[in-house]
């Protein structure tokens, strides 16, 4: 569980996060949604320790990040898996080397054991033929799956995903969403996803945090988002006719 209490963050005098508090639950897919500039990415990067909030606390299962010493912070980071928007695969390494990288860096496992674990996670993300390929030789969807494999190879307690299905075709996007949800349940990890994609919200939004202008404007789950009268959420989520119709159909049922 990740508990965020009243965090604030500014850049050049411009306050981006204005006192956000929430809880990201274990074993659930927690989504952060909101318009561009609403503070989603800053919140995600604050959770990852890339940005340091000016006030407030972030605690990982009771460990308050700002109170940890540098070694404890690095230790905590080994419990984190991250899927970046652009996959962020190391382009000089093969798929297998990318996936095995956290194991080579942080475990004392021998090559055979690392290889077995890499094979296992690549099979889990349905990529058994790509071991020796470079990231530039595989498709965007495959790169995302490799990034997910790399994020989970070290059995993380926390999984963060920044726009995991941006730039993917609808079928692949749904595959990626489902894969993240399955992995979250299977390994009982705390997953936080930053997304613009309303399909993801409807598919895997077990907990949704909606940000507007750096403030928490609404939170709930995918069932509640259909019923909410919150104007900001309705204006953002149901801005397209398609989603308006989906909502109407859901409410009629």
């Amino acid at each position: 569980m990740i508990e965020v209490k009243n965090i604030e963050k500014s850049f050049g005098g411009n306050k981006i996060l204005k006192g956000i508090s929430t809880v990201f639950e274990t074993g659930k897919t927690n989504l952060i949604i909101g318009q561009s500039g609403s503070g989603k990415t800053v919140l995600l990067k604050s959770l990852l320790g890339i940005h340091t909030p000016e006030s407030g606390t972030i605690s990982f299962d009771g460990r308050i990040y700002s109170e940890l010493n540098p070694d404890e912070k690095r230790e905590l980071r080994t419990e984190i898996g991250m899927v970046f928007q652009g996959s962020a695969l190391f382009d000089s390494m093969t798929v297998a080397e990318n996936v095995g990288f956290p194991l080579r860096m942080f475990t004392k496992d021998n090559n055979k054991k690392i290889q077995e674990r890499v094979d296992f996670v690549l099979k889990r993300v349905d990529l058994t033929e790509a071991h020796k390929k470079l990231p530039s030789e595989i498709s965007g969807g495959m790169q995302k799956r490799v990034a997910i494999a790399r994020a989970i190879v070290n059995n993380p307690k926390y999984l963060f995903c920044d726009e995991p299905n941006s730039g993917l075709d609808p079928n692949t996007a749904i595959l990626i969403d489902n894969l993240i949800r399955e992995i979250t349940e299977e390994y009982n990890i705390t997953t936080v996803i930053n997304t613009h994609d309303m399909n993801s919200v409807m598919e895997i939004g077990e907990k949704i945090l909606f940000l507007k202008d750096g403030l928490k404007a609404w939170e709930g789950n995918k069932e509640e988002i259909f019923r909410t009268d919150n104007e900001a959420v309705v204006a953002f989520v149901y801005s397209s006719n398609l989603f308006k119709k989906v909502r109407e159909a859901y409410l009629k049922e």
């Binding site: 320790g49 984190i80 963060f160």
Partner: peptide, 17 residues
């Protein structure tokens, strides 16, 4: 620089490297 713009450096940092 390419590693920076493609977030590979962020990936290293997030992993604790």
């Amino acid at each position: 620089g390419t590693m920076r713009v493609t977030e590979q450096i962020d990936a290293l940092e997030v992993m604790g490297v």
